Simulated assay, not measured.
Amino acid sequence: YYAETANIVAWCELRQAIRNFRSDRIEDCQATGLRFKGEGDRLRQVWVSGWEANASAAV
């Protein structure tokens, strides 16, 4: 599914969720200086739980 493009997994302010973004479709970005210090494990679990939800929906 993602073999032909580079993708970025990041928080989407619009959707208020972790989303996948194709790097070739990003038109603009700016560094905010904000960090998720100490939240890496929690955010990773949210990301992985999205895989599980999608796998359940496909069955």
Rank of each mutant, 00 (worst) to 15 (best):
A55V: 15
E13P: 01
L43A: 05
A10V: 00
R19P: 02
Y2N: 07
K37V: 09
W47V: 04
Q16D: 13
A53L: 05
Y2M: 06
D24H: 04
Y2P: 08
R19Q: 13
I18C: 08
E13C: 02
Q16N: 10
N7D: 02
A17V: 05
D24I: 00
A10C: 06
Q45F: 03
G40M: 06
T5I: 10
C12S: 15
D24V: 04
I18A: 09
A58E: 10
D41Q: 14
L14W: 03
R44Y: 02
Y1I: 12
S56A: 13
K37G: 13
E39Q: 15
F36I: 12
S49W: 04
I18V: 15
Q45E: 12
W47L: 03
A58R: 13
R44G: 01
V46M: 14
I8D: 03
T5S: 08
T32L: 05
A58S: 15
N20I: 15
I8M: 09
T5K: 10
A57T: 02
Q30D: 08
I8C: 06
A10L: 02
G50W: 00
F21N: 14
E13W: 03
R25Y: 00
F36T: 14
S49I: 01
T32S: 10
E13I: 09
G40A: 13
A17Q: 13
C29Y: 15
G40C: 05
A53R: 08
R25F: 01
W51H: 11
I18D: 05
C12M: 07
G50I: 00
G40Q: 07
E39Y: 10
A17E: 07
N7C: 07
V9R: 02
R44C: 09
F36D: 12
K37Q: 13
A6H: 10
L34M: 09
R25E: 07
D28E: 11
G38D: 13
Y2T: 07
T5P: 00
R15Y: 09
A3H: 06
V46T: 09
I8V: 14
S56G: 01
V59L: 13
R35S: 12
V46I: 15
D24W: 01
R19W: 08
G33C: 00
E27N: 06
A10S: 13
E4G: 12
S56L: 10
I18K: 09
S56F: 05
E13H: 08
V9Q: 01
A31W: 07
L43T: 03
V9D: 01
L14A: 08
T5V: 05
Y1G: 13
I26H: 05
C12Q: 06
A17W: 02
S56T: 12
G33I: 02
L14F: 04
E27I: 12
A17M: 04
A3V: 11
R19H: 14
A17P: 00
R44V: 04
R44W: 05
E52T: 09
W47S: 06
A55I: 14
I26L: 11
D28H: 15
E27V: 15
E52I: 07
D24L: 00
R15D: 15
G38R: 11
A57I: 08
R25D: 06
V9T: 11
I26N: 03
D28L: 10
S23G: 03
R22K: 04
V59M: 07
V59F: 12
